[in-house]
Amino acid sequence: MPSWVPLVLLLVPVGICLALPFKRDLLDKVWLVLAAEAVFGIGVGTYLALFSVPPERDMGEVVRIFAAHVPQVQNALLAVVLNFGCSLWFLIRKSWVADSLAESSAEVGLYLGAVGTALGAIWAKPTWGVYWTWDPRLTSAAVMLIYYAGYLALRRFTDNPDTRATWSAALGTFGIVIPVTVYKSVVWMKSMHQVQSSPETVYPQLVTAFRFSAIGFLCLMIVFIYQRYRIAQEQLKREVAPPEALGAPQGAA
């Protein structure tokens, strides 16, 4: 199968995300389509990676784990960038949609990042003989997870929804430094560690499987964020008193 085929699948999530600002309730109906595509993409990607890709010369069988590891870490970074965008959006417009989206993307990003990092450690054991290689990208990704765990902890510790939204938006905005660190750490630390290259250059046979899986995980991330966003909005409804509860205006003094 030519390696561009999975890219066709990309049209669905990208199209939906582009249409979302114009039609807010779009996902209420089509999230099942994305869920189906997530299952399909991850399924096909995993199948190809496990059964159709030949073992690699140096890494052998473990190279297959790349098809799950890299997409999850990439999508985690994407979720973190989304968190940054929503944080800025909140600071500028004070929108509760932005606040809920920021919380959801941080949580989903934390989940994907944790799984992705664990898979990276599993890959490292047979390849380099150790679970933890102190590879700068691996380590800074782990540090990023700690930051967003702290972000979520602060949200839990703050009772007033208005304050919580402002503070976490400030954290999310400042936090953009961290994905940049993850990205640049390899360059900064290269005097000590070898640069880790992407799987495309490491092993071309894996590319098709990798792309299926990456697009599947992208859809999965959108579905997760969407569902988590709905929960966040429900929680806000309980936590934030609606103006309707105020009743009619009182007479002027």
Partner: peptide, 12 residues
């Protein structure tokens, strides 16, 4: 809370 938020951004 302070160190787990601060240290990550101070990595660089």
């Amino acid at each position: 809370l302070l160190p787990i938020l601060l240290f990550p951004v101070l990595v660089p």
